[in-house]
């Protein structure tokens, strides 16, 4: 799967979609594919202040566990509650129904630290 345009990416395989002063965060198709069947996602609490590239949770598959780093800092506005009962959504639709959490941006300049779809593609296919 090619990386969707219009999103920004981190080296740790998270994507972020910035809309005004908020941003939606998820993990990339490459990430879900290498983890395998995801069985649980531990997300930050709503209201929590998180800083860019900080460890904010964990993604568990049947036999692997991976730290979740946020590609962007701010305050957690909302988390994807549906993942509690349907973690498979991250495998099925990592850029859509499998989104993880929504952030109110702390600093719009942080996006300059992220990668474009084309640049991320290079990392993911290395």
């Amino acid at each position: 799967m090619a990386q969707p345009e219009g999103l920004l990416y981190s080296k740790e395989h998270e994507w972020v979609k910035i809309e005004g002063d908020t941003a939606l965060v998820g993990i990339t198709d490459y990430a879900q594919n290498s983890l395998g069947d995801i069985v649980y996602v531990e997300l930050p609490r709503v209201g929590k202040a998180i800083s860019q590239f900080g460890n904010v949770g964990v993604v568990e598959s049947v036999k692997a566990v991976s730290d979740l780093f946020t590609p962007i800092g701010g305050e957690v506005l909302e988390i994807n509650d549906t993942l509690e009962n349907d973690p498979a959504a991250v495998n099925r639709d990592p850029y859509g129904a499998g989104w993880l959490f929504k952030v109110k941006l702390a600093d719009a300049n942080e996006k300059n630290n992220l990668l474009s779809a084309a640049d991320y593609e290079k990392i993911a296919t290395e």
Partner: peptide, 11 residues
């Protein structure tokens, strides 16, 4: 099993 030491190691 992802909770367990053999997968999480220092985590």
């Amino acid at each position: 099993q992802a909770r367990e030491q053999h997968i999480r190691r220092e985590r």
